[in-house]
Design a protein around this nucleic acid. Sequence first.
DNA 1: ACATTGACCTGAGAGC
DNA 2: TGCTCTCAGGTCAATG
Length: 265
Amino acid sequence: MPELPDVEVFRRYMAATALHKKIENVRVKADRVMQGVSARRLSSALKGQQFRRTDRHGKYLFAELTSDKFLLLHFGMTGFLKYFKVEDEKPDHVKLLIDFANDYHLAYDNQRKLGRVSLIDDRDRFVSSQGLGPDPLDDDFDSATFDSIMKGRRGSIKSALMNQQILAGIGNIYSDEILYQAGIRPDSSAAKLNAKDRLKTFNAMLRVLRVAIRHKADPEKLPGSYLILSREAGRRCSKCGGEIKKATISGRSAYYCGRHQRLIT
DNA sequence: ACATTGACCTGAGAGC
DNA sequence: TGCTCTCAGGTCAATG
């Protein structure tokens, strides 16, 4: 679930529910997902504070506290947030539970332990220390930046789109979707795309990410012309009737239409 | 320096 | 029903 559009939906959800409320208590499950911070320190950093605003870069969510520190959340493959009041709405694999003064709770849930919860001092410093590339939805990210990123790549276009050091936020599902919409096969060489192909990919990227966010990143609500609805080998392409193929690229399973997506080598 | 692979976790679903 | 096997949207360290 949690690629850029999903995390943006989580961010908006958190902003709509959990800002400006006094944090009364914090329950931390000491776990692999806690990174660089003990349960005790995280708990004391949150207690008595409020969340002032939320922010996102790629797949990372930042929740700024009134103390100027940030709670950092990464959702791995199975993470999500839930704001709730009564106990029976509490999800099953809660790693961090924040109790507010209004008797509501915010849960960070993650079944598999591939996510990350941390406490950081500075958002921008975190982004650069992680070596994260630009977020494609940042205002100053344009097609010229996208061009310069893609030109120097030796591998496939799909791997380039998914490389967080190059471009932050796109994962396996949305890289397939972007290339499906752009009509380019995922195993095409990133460096061999011409200017027109790059512009097509860039435009498809922005469109797909925005449309996904608008539909709450819920696959069932996405337009019928999206690959995500028929992402299975042997199915028919919703655009051209071609056959959906499966391939392994950089160790991840990729799906594409064998007819309307062009291989560029 | 860059690209690709395997390991890390846990549970769902397929196949028998 | 129950067992085993494979796979899953994440990153990171190790390898080529």
